[in-house]
Computed example of a mutant assay.
Amino acid sequence: MVRSEEPEKKPAAAPPPERAGKSFRLRSSSLNTIRLRRVFDLFDQNGDGEITLPELDRALARLGLEEGGAKELESAVTAFIKPGHEGLGFEDFTGLHQSLGDALFGVAVADEEAAEVEEELAEAFRVFDENGDGFISAKELQSVLGKLGLSEGRDITRVCEMISSVDRDHDGRVDFSEFKNMMVSISARSS
Rank of each mutant, 00 (worst) to 15 (best):
R158N: 08
A13W: 10
N131W: 06
S165V: 02
I136H: 01
K22Q: 11
L148M: 04
Q45K: 10
I156P: 04
R35H: 12
E66K: 03
E72H: 09
H170K: 15
G172Q: 09
G153I: 06
A124N: 04
A122S: 06
S30V: 14
A13T: 03
E5K: 12
A79W: 07
A115Y: 05
K82L: 11
K180P: 03
K22E: 11
T52F: 12
I136C: 06
L121Y: 04
D171N: 15
S29M: 13
K82S: 14
G87P: 00
A14W: 05
S99Q: 11
A110F: 02
L141A: 10
A13G: 04
I156A: 13
C160N: 07
L150P: 01
F90M: 05
R126K: 12
G49L: 12
A61Y: 06
A124Q: 08
S23Q: 08
G149L: 03
D155V: 05
R35F: 08
M182I: 01
S164F: 00
S4W: 14
A188K: 14
E50Q: 15
V166S: 05
K82W: 03
S177Y: 09
V77Q: 06
S187E: 15
A76P: 00
H170I: 08
F43Y: 14
E6T: 11
S190C: 08
G21P: 00
E91T: 11
A61I: 00
H170F: 05
L63E: 05
T157H: 09
N181C: 10
S143D: 04
D41F: 00
D48K: 09
S190W: 06
